[in-house]
């Protein structure tokens, strides 16, 4: 059911596969609603092939040239077929100047929070700290299985992994420091695009 843009996973109650799946559908729908409210983009995709296609669409739509992916195996797999169309930077050899010259950073997110539309990144699981921050566009791949209901649930889960850096990201970078007028993309990414990956 790969749809790009405002995703609607369908009414939860009509799901034939039992309460667990419909509960997840409700989480996905409130998560995507909150993402839209905080100014993040979202595409729901099923399976990696569709995710790679959606990623290519996001990159070319943004006119991206230089793209860097994190060390997450999923991110590497998604970027592999795109190497002939974009300059894919190698994270191991990425200098600070290269990092600042990147157009897009691609990472996964370990958790999502439905009630706030938040992405949660854990340093112990992936090297995503700078790629989710420095390039003007951040694409985050998140499995629908990893959406928590509340902030409290997410805090419980990140506590267990005990990363030295845990980052909660809710929408793009923003400021209201001048006359309380909202400006998006001041120091961090101007665009946050979530690829919400459903199991096949």
């Amino acid at each position: 059911m790969g749809s790009t843009g405002s995703a609607d996973p369908g009414p939860a109650t009509e799901d034939p596969q039992g309460p667990r799946k419909s509960f997840r559908a409700a989480l996905v729908s409130s998560f995507t609603e909150r993402l839209a409210a905080v100014g993040a983009q979202c595409s729901v995709v099923s399976g990696e092939a569709e995710a790679a296609g959606a990623l290519a669409g996001i990159l070319s739509g943004a006119g991206a040239r230089r793209v860097a992916g994190s060390d997450a195996p999923l991110v590497q797999r998604l970027l592999q077929p795109l190497r002939d169309r974009f300059q894919i930077a190698d994270l191991e050899r990425l200098s600070r100047d290269d990092l600042f010259a990147c157009d897009v950073g691609v990472t996964t997110a370990q958790w999502g929070i439905a009630e706030t539309g938040t992405l949660v990144l854990e340093s112990a699981r992936e090297r995503s700290r700078l790629l989710s921050l420095v390039p003007p566009i951040h694409v985050a791949v998140l499995s629908t299985r990893c959406i928590c209901g509340s902030l409290g649930d997410a805090l419980d889960r990140v506590r267990q992994a005990a990363s030295h850096a845990i980052t909660f990201i809710t929408g793009p970078s923003r400021t209201s420091d001048i006359e309380l007028t909202l400006v998006v993309g001041v120091h961090g990414p101007q665009t946050v695009h979530v690829l919400l990956l459903e199991d096949v």
Partner: peptide, 8 residues
């Protein structure tokens, strides 16, 4: 509801 970033 939440600021854009929390760093823990």
């Amino acid at each position: 509801a939440l600021t854009a970033y929390q760093s823990l």
